[in-house]
Design a protein around this nucleic acid. Structure first.
Lengths: 347, 347
DNA sequence: CTGAAAGCGCTTACAG
DNA sequence: CTGAAAGCGCTTACAG
């Protein structure tokens, strides 16, 4: 079965009757080689079942063609889509993207990052795990390996970030809700240790401010950024004396949870309570009722991040501009008008 | 910023005033080194900002600690869960799992596999893309690198496979439907180029046979294994003269599509038409109505695959037993009784 | 166009 | 316990 001894360029050289330099040159597609020779060598490569040893080449060349993508939660379709977008452009550029999952765990992330560095990656694209400490990337930066953050960023870090315009998205969504007649609004899910949270919540608050929703009519419920978290948020909100009639959710997962909790109470999103999500994952469109959400062009952002990384590697720099992606509100069924709006409300 | 020249063990040796062999030994945690020396060396490692060059080490040791996981569709939560399950055990075993996505594209898969081999992986776990040719793994087998298939297998391949008991799962689901009074049954989605399809369809047909559903009352509609595919299947099925009243779907994605299409026609899964999915993804439970599905213990299968791989590497073999995972039917709301069952039917 | 030689960063016997 | 030396598979000047 297994051909025990791996073939090397020396075996090829012997087989083809040339020197190993010549083999190396045809491996690299050099134009210096006479076509007949190249053909002969390529045949030998086939014959001996050669597998290029990129590790050895990288060692000699002192650089690699692998880029690490470190994702905080691969089971979230949102991040999976991001990864797929990046992969596409890397593949096209002839670099090999390796994905690793940190499961939202900073310790795990530390290990993964270390592995990637030891493997000699040319660059790292990371969507940092929650609770990542500011120092987590110091050694990597010191080693001169380019890093870009995707979707998430760290407070006071100089590492370039590619992210959607979270503030703007939240403003759009909140204005939409207010225009629909809602006067008591909630912001559901997430927590303040995430920069993204601050941006989205900031947009929500700004829109409330601008359109005259007083602080007393704004409810903020922190929570897990999952379906479960969303369910809890709704329960909390509905338990207060004058509950909100609409909510902007930290992300779509939270929004799905809210809709689920509504249904359990015999209420329907859109008619009894308005809900808006964030991210516009593929499922939003297919949910019932279909979820109004802020579209962030996930795959596009992924591609962008990959391009930025490629350019950083090429120009041997560790710096780049941040990129804030455009967002848009996709209005569907889940965000209907306030039922009581003509009866007069304004708590 | 970037410390241009990377530190090597020679730098550490110089810094610590020892030889590089000594440094290498402490790097490997050898017990041969006097504690004080080790401490001194470790300090030097910190001081010079050393990053272990695993590529160089692997070159010398002629083996690596990276394992490749090649997944056919990372955006499908089902496969993402599988990957995460595997990652967990690898991480614990000190090996580095790198994930790559083939997007269900055999050509892409070819490239990814090649990259992985060049990178010198110690083993490969793959969920083969649809349309993978039997020869796709010949070179890898010839090179003596262990491969295991997860979830999917190839016809007439000797590569060990870890997969759920698809046949049994389909039998359970079909029996359930028949016991609920359904007499005209459909099998929705998938296509015969997938071994999994043949297994699941086989179970469906066997149960029909056993419980006396004649061939004339069985409808098989092939289709994409996605929501979209499911929607199309339902349309096709409802267009025939005596349409089925229940369907076993190739997977949950197809089932979600069927439920969507039902709703668009003002019908409700569970009361107007029974639907059963396959895989029992996390979402099945939260859907409305909640989806009856065949649970396959995805994460468990992933862990199992990882363990098999680890053992193969350890015992330097390229062979292992197949593993067929137990399945169970999780009955929820989407599979109600046939409404007309007492009125008499049997086309 | 092709060959001989050095060296990338590590590990592994082999002496001491 | 520690040091000197060889070698893993490749690439890169440097001659010819």
């Amino acid at each position: 079965m297994a051909s025990r001894a791996k073939a090397t360029i020396l075996d090829i050289a012997r087989e083809a009757g040339v020197s190993k330099s010549t083999v190396s040159l045809v491996l690299q597609g050099s134009g210096l080689i006479r076509p007949e020779t190249a053909v002969k060598v390529r045949k030998a490569i086939e014959d001996v079942g050669y597998v290029y040893n990129r590790g050895a080449a990288n060692l000699r060349k002192a650089h690699s063609n692998v880029i690490g993508m470190v994702i905080n939660d691969l089971t979230n379709p949102f991040f999976a889509e991001l990864a797929v977008g990046m992969e596409r452009v890397f593949q096209a550029a002839g670099v090999v993207p390796f994905i690793a999952n940190t499961a939202e765990n900073p310790v795990r992330q530390e290990e993964v990052l270390k592995s990637m560095m030891e493997q000699g990656v040319a660059g790292l694209i990371v969507s940092p795990a929650r609770g990542t400490t500011p120092g987590a990337f110091r050694r990597i930066e010191a080693a001169g390996v380019p890093v870009v953050f995707a979707m998430r960023r760290l407070p006071e870090s100089r590492i370039p970030a590619i992210a959607p315009d979270n503030h703007r998205g939240a403003v759009l969504a909140t204005e939409h809700l207010i225009r629909k007649g809602h006067r008591r609004l909630a912001f559901f899910g997430g927590s303040s240790d995430l920069v993204v949270y601050q941006e989205r919540l900031g947009g929500f608050l700004e829109a409330c401010e601008t359109l005259g929703i007083p602080a007393a009519d704004r409810l903020i419920v922190e929570g897990e950024t999952s379906r479960k978290g969303g369910m809890a948020c709704l329960e909390t909100a509905l338990a207060i004396p004058e509950p909100p009639t609409a909510a902007l959710c930290f992300n779509d997962a939270v929004a799905f949870g809210v809709m689920l909790a509504l249904r359990k109470r015999g209420l329907e999103a859109g008619t009894d309570f308005a809900v808006v999500g964030f991210d516009d994952v593929a499922e939003a469109e297919h949910y019932s009722p279909a979820l109004t959400s802020v579209a962030v062009d996930t795959a596009g952002l992924g591609e962008r991040a990959a391009h930025v990384m490629l350019k950083m590697i090429q120009s041997r720099t560790t710096r780049a501009e941040d990129h804030i992606g455009a967002v848009s509100l996709v209005v569907r069924e889940s965000s209907g008008p306030d039922r009581n709006t003509q009866v007069g409300d304004a708590a």
